[in-house]
Design a protein around this nucleic acid. Structure first.
Length: 915
RNA sequence: GGGCGCUUAGCUCAGUUGGGAGAGCAUCGCCCUUACAAGGCGAGGGUCACAAGUUCAAGUCUUGUAGCGCCCA
């Protein structure tokens, strides 16, 4: 074995071997009683995988590999999402650089271009996944626009339509005037922005009075249909039912009363623009007001407005309107105002409420069973508190606008005749049948919201609506692993559609992971220039390349300087190559239940070091056991029994943590076992054990047995390095597995849990630590052999000493250990205690006694602190009477041992000081 | 305005029916000891945001305050 492990070579090797051997296939373990399945949240084919993907993929891979090696028939279903708007935008932007618009190409040519992009981008994603070691069943890879998945989409649409759960209608929707499409509520991000509040005078018809209304969007006055006041507002009672002259328009509009109006806000008068405001729309419906649309698709003023404003862009129109009002002295005042401005999540353009014909899903009948599924425990959120977020949204849910005026996606299977009658069918022929021969039909131009097809993912990928064997075997899936950012977009909709169409919930557990942020807790984004590519952490990247990556092709090139500076500061030497396993281990240690995960390179470094530690421990084992015939039935020594016992505890903890999705605790447990139990202690103990004939065989068998099981435990987290070590050690092993990936997960063996060896080794460790501490504090070189006296031994001390004498001498580098009886006078010594046994290291020729006095005082101080704490408790009568017996007894025994130790140390202090 | 969450060592964070304040990284000291310097050994460092309450006992439960963050309107 190489002295330092080199991830690059071994990763490439096993990527190929695993996949070519079909080890990821869901057909394995087909005789098993248990099925385990996860669907991969399909990444968008818009680009490449980011840290969040890599993080979640690692979690899913750990679960998948674990269940596979437990013997479950395991499916991890891969695939990608066509991501309608996002992908269309990527391609449109590329065309833009060649000065081509999608309209130049036409629908058919354009979608061809998008398919080209899809093949390119999909390839990037899958190759990245392979680099990460994701063990998905590649033979089952899907895409949301595959034929079978598209058929499923059509079927769902048609069935919902026939049931009256999908309808088409003219409604006020969120309109993106740049994309020229409707978007759903979820795709609109409202943020606080500085604006103005214009107070405008509306003259009351046939009167001298004016009503002052306030608005943040003065141009919308061109579409006003009424002025509203609160029915109880004394100031305006006499005006209800009268008319106002709407300025700039030559129109008269009524004054109405409605509870919706807030009397306290502004003047208490509100302009009502039903076609351009969601609240006003409601009021308009109630009062049967006219919906006056004053905007074109791209947010210019249309022909319904006075000539002066027609064809003006909405923001220019705003200025013009204000100017004209000022001219007529109709502006009362202009206040600065912070308000919520809605912007499209893709384009960042201001979203307009806009009247258009759209398709909607009537959502409440679907939401109710989906709410119940979580209430009655069919679905569990992990961590649990996310269910509150889910309920909160589901209980206030609104109909879902599913039509998009774009070209990339599932075209809506609806046709219209000349009179606008709708025929919903799976194809033109069927639609024609419905319409009757000779009726001229045209298909709806729109496509479906991307999330409509994603909502079917857990069953459409398994072959639904066909009754496939996969569907019956793997549906409902075991767990969904995803981020909280798409609970509404995706998770909720999968639950609704799963229950409705697949007849059952789509998954039993929903593990909501945290989101990966940069080291400062900032969201990673291209515009912030703080994105890390998981592949760069695996392979490493120079500062120059990283800078180029972060500043290339930016939407706002003026930020490049700042990004360069930040990047240079943070990654002055670029990023070293850490390897896939180190990155995966890092992700699992970060997988606690927090919301934000600050990603820190130092953490990866620590995990890389762990891999190296494991590598070197294996190298040690291999060197020691090379060409030896291992006797797996050999007698075991106490240290052998101890490490086997520790291994069982580790296995128990690992399974517990994994079943609770605490991958952070799982990897921490394994880290501690490997580093601190196996390497720090057992490997050190093995050195003397291997040197002695009586203990050698048992130790050899234990070394390899524990290593081998540990590799299996670690394999789900760090598959590459463990597979490589397994291969190198295979000749030593007695098991028949060809590869670690197919090796059965080790069972917990309760009979190997040994309390006796645990307490004996604990004693041994205390002994050695005592001596190391003296060495450390006295600055005695670790290589210098020391003489040692022990005094005040009880029977177990005596037994332990007898069986561990040479081990202690080796590990603590002692020249000799001599027992003193109670009455023997000891030389001037440094002291450590193991229980009541005293360890004495003579000071002669080593250090001056001042240092030992200092050290003793420090120890004594610590003990006194504890003594105070315990006596305080025990002097409290309420504690004695109120606390359970065991607790009181425990406190008492703690106090007595502290007091004994104190006595010993104080005596020692006196003795040394007086010399 | 409604909801959710966070505040523990210099930094990042664990702490699961209330009973010993922990890890990694960073810091300091000694050591290139034949698995590992990507290492070994030892050490220092905390009023668990603040206040009140429940309890024999609170980082942990309840209430309030302050600061920060997210989601929804």
């Amino acid at each position: 074995m190489e002295k330092t492990y080199n991830p690059e070579l071994i990763e490439a090797k096993f990527r190929d071997i695993w996949e070519q051997s079909h080890f990821f296939s869901s057909q394995l373990n087909s005789n098993s009683q248990n099925a385990y399945s996860i669907v991969l949240p399909p990444p968008n084919v818009t680009g490449s995988l980011h840290m969040g993907h890599a993080f979640q993929h690692t979690i899913m891979d750990v679960l998948t590999r674990y269940h596979r090696s437990k013997g479950d028939q395991t499916l991890w279903q891969p695939g990608t999402d066509h991501a309608g708007i996002a992908t269309q935008m990527v391609v449109e932007r590329q065309l833009e650089r060649q000065n081509i618009s999608r309209h130049d190409l036409g629908r058919e040519k354009f979608t061809e271009k998008v398919w080209d992009w899809k093949h390119h981008s999909g390839g990037t994603i899958t190759s990245q996944m392979r680099r990460l070691g994701t063990s998905v069943d590649w033979e089952r890879e899907c895409f949301t626009m595959d034929k079978t998945l598209s058929d499923a989409v059509q079927k769902v649409f048609i069935e919902l339509y026939n049931e009256g759960l999908i309808y088409r209608g003219k409604r006020l929707v969120n309109w993106d005037p740049v994309l020229l499409t409707a978007v759903s509520d979820l795709e609109v991000i409202s943020t606080e922005e500085q604006g103005s509040l214009w107070h405008i005078r509306y003259p009351v018809a046939n009167s001298d009075e004016v009503m002052v209304v306030a608005t943040t969007r003065p141009e919308t006055m061109l579409g006003d249909s009424a002025v509203a006041i609160h029915p109880n507002d004394d100031r305006y009672q006499h005006l209800i039912g009268k008319m106002v002259n709407l300025p700039l328009t030559n129109r008269q509009i009524p004054i109405i009363a409605d509870n919706y109006v807030d009397m306290e806000f502004g003047t208490g008068c509100v302009k009502i623009t039903p076609a351009h405001d969601f609240n006003d729309y409601e009021i308009g419906q109630k009062h049967e007001l006219e919906n006056i649309n004053i905007l074109t698709d791209d947010a210019k003023i249309n022909l319904n407005a006075p000539k002066a404003y027609q064809n003006l862009d909405r923001f220019i129109a705003r200025k013009t309107v204000v100017k004209d009002l000022e001219k007529q002295n109709l502006i009362e005042k202009i206040d600065p105002h912070t308000m919520m401005v809605p912007r499209g999540d893709r384009t960042n353009s201001v979203i307009e409420p806009y009247m258009t014909d759209q398709w909607f899903v009537k959502i409440i009948p679907l939401a109710e069973p989906a709410i119940n599924a979580v209430k009655n425990g069919d679905i569990r959120f992990i961590p649990e508190n996310w269910e509150k977020t889910y309920f909160n949204w589901m209980e206030n849910i609104e109909d879902w606008c599913i039509s998009r005026q774009i070209w990339w996606g599932h075209r809506i299977p609806a046709w219209y005749d000349k009179n606008g009658k709708i025929y919903v069918a799976k194809n033109f022929t069927e639609a024609q049948k419905q319409a009757g021969k000779g009726v001229e039909l045209t298909q709806d131009e729109d496509v479906l919201d991307t999330w409509f097809s994603s909502a079917l993912w857990p069953f459409s990928t398994l072959g639904w609506p066909e009754k496939t064997s996969e569907l019956s075997r793997f549906y409902p899936t075991s767990v969904l692993v995803t981020g909280f950012d798409i609970i509404f977009f995706w998770v909720a909709r999968m639950i609704m559609f799963g229950i409705k169409f697949a007849g059952n919930v789509p998954f039993k557990d929903i593990y909501i992971t945290g989101l990966i942020k940069d080291g400062h807790g900032q969201k990673m984004s291209k515009s912030k220039g703080n994105v890390l590519d998981p592949i760069d952490l695996i392979d490493g990247i120079s500062l120059e390349e990283l800078l180029e990556k972060r500043t290339q092709g930016m939407m706002q090139p003026e930020l490049a300087k700042k990004i360069t500076k930040q990047t240079e500061k943070e990654f002055s030497n670029g990023i070293p190559s850490f390897g896939t396993d180190a990155l995966r281990f890092t992700f699992t240690t970060l997988a606690s239940f927090g919301r934000d995960i600050k990603f820190d390179l130092k953490r990866v470094e620590g995990c890389r070091n762990f891999c190296n530690k494991l590598w070197n421990a294996s190298r040690f084992v291999l060197m020691k056991l090379e060409s030896r015939l291992i006797d797996f039935d050999a007698t075991l020594s106490t240290p052998d029994k101890w490490i086997l016992s520790r291994l069982q505890h580790t296995k128990i903890a690992v399974e517990k943590h994994l079943s609770e999705y605490r991958l952070d605790l799982m990897s921490q447990t394994l880290y501690e076992f490997v580093w601190h139990d196996y390497c720090d202690w057992y490997l050190e103990l093995s050195k003397p054990l291997l040197d002695s004939k009586e203990t050698r065989s048992g130790c050899e068998a234990t070394l390899i047995k524990v290593l081998s099981e540990t590799l299996t435990l670690l394999h789900p987290i760090i598959p590459f390095i463990t597979e490589e070590i397994f291969e190198q050690c295979r000749s030593l092993n007695d098991d028949k597995s060809e590869r670690l990936i197919t090796k059965p997960y080790p069972e917990i063996d309760q009979t190997l849990i040994s309390k006796n060896s645990e307490s004996e080794i604990a004693w041994l460790q205390e002994f050695i630590l005592g001596i190391r501490q003296i060495r450390g504090e006295m600055n005695i070189s670790p290589g210098k052999p020391l003489p040692c006296f022990i005094q005040n031994l009880d029977t177990s001390d005596k037994a332990y000493i007898k069986s561990n004498l040479s081990i202690i001498e080796t590990l603590a580098k002692l020249e000799s250990i001599k027992q003193l009886s109670e009455n023997d006078s000891s030389p001037e010594s440094a002291t450590a205690l193991v229980g009541e046994m005293k360890i004495l290291i003579p000071l002669a020729g080593l250090v001056d006694k001042k240092q030992e006095i200092l050290r003793l005082n420090k120890e004594i101080e610590k003990l006194i602190k504890h003594q105070r704490q315990y006596t305080g408790k025990l002097n409290n009568k309420k504690f004695i009477s109120g606390a359970p017996k065991e607790v009181v007894e425990k406190e008492q025994s703690k106090l007595s041992s502290v007091e004994k130790a104190l006595g010993d140390l104080e005596l020692q202090l006196k003795k040394i000081s007086s010399l």
